[in-house]
Design a binder for these strands. Sequence first.
DNA 1: GACGACTTGTTAT
DNA 2: ATAACAAGTCGTC
Length: 153
Amino acid sequence: MIESLSVKWKLFVNVFLKDEKVYKVMFSKEPVEENYKSKTAKMLKNDLTNYFRGYEVDFRCYDVYLEVTPFVRSVLDVVRDIPYGETTTYGEIARALNTSPRAVGVALKLNPTPIVIPCHRVIAKNGLGGFSSGLNIKIELLKLERIRFLFQT
DNA sequence: GACGACTTGTTAT
DNA sequence: ATAACAAGTCGTC
């Protein structure tokens, strides 16, 4: 049984739950049809709403339904532990896992649940890297968490 | 600041 | 099985 919910932000943020686990997060212009009743879903809706209002929220208590390779899972596990308002680089994660930054980038792209797994907190060493749902969204998320990053002109 | 080389897991052929 | 690619990084010019 899949549950769905939307939270309004710059765009609508739509979340799908399966078996009380976060299954997918996606952005869209219009909200999806809401259909949720589990305690987890209600809690998540509340947490997301607060998050977009600018409050600090920790999404680590939610289970994520991951259908990915062990390598990708290990990268995402590391990313989940980046605290609110802080950032890491692809290179640092690569060093911690004894792999290459390039591979880390690919793994993050495979993250089905942005925000819940805060892949936006991973930026490039000089610059800010990419974001599969649109770089502008990554920038807005960083602003939301009041992360300062300097632009060179 | 603009290239090129190197990397390593994923994806396509 | 093999080649091409990517949300990177480092050294050189």
